[in-house]
């Protein structure tokens, strides 16, 4: 059971390293924000898998709060770059 979770987390680690590579390499701030949006969705999925691994349900609450905060951050930065404020 644990080795399947290890393979799954290896998948997520490859995805996360690709996202961080894109976040570092891209130049424009909006492009950086796009990669950050993908990274936050990835981390929320990783939190759900961690909740399945540990069997503790409060990690799901952390995932909900993380999704709300990341959505707010992306929206605020996007509106700022747009000139909405």
């Amino acid at each position: 059971m644990e080795i399947v979770f290890a393979i799954l987390f290896a998948f997520f680690a490859v995805s996360l390293s690709l996202g961080v590579f894109a976040l570092i390499r891209l130049k424009h701030p909006v492009e950086k924000m796009v990669s950050l949006d993908v990274i936050t969705t990835l981390i929320t999925a990783v939190l759900l898998v961690i909740a399945a691994l540990t069997g503790s349900s409060f990690v799901l609450d952390i995932a909900i709060i993380y999704a709300i905060l990341s959505f707010g951050a992306v929206l605020v930065v996007a509106r700022y770059r747009e000139g909405g404020f």
């Binding site: 424009h28 909006v30 492009e31 924000m33 796009v34 949006d37 959505f71 992306v74 929206l75 930065v77 996007a78 509106r79 770059r81 747009e82 000139g83």
Partner: peptide, 14 residues
């Protein structure tokens, strides 16, 4: 979020 980022990219002149 995707829509807001696309609008920001278009208005930033990318």
């Amino acid at each position: 979020g995707s829509h807001a980022l696309a609008r920001a990219a278009k208005n930033s002149g990318i």
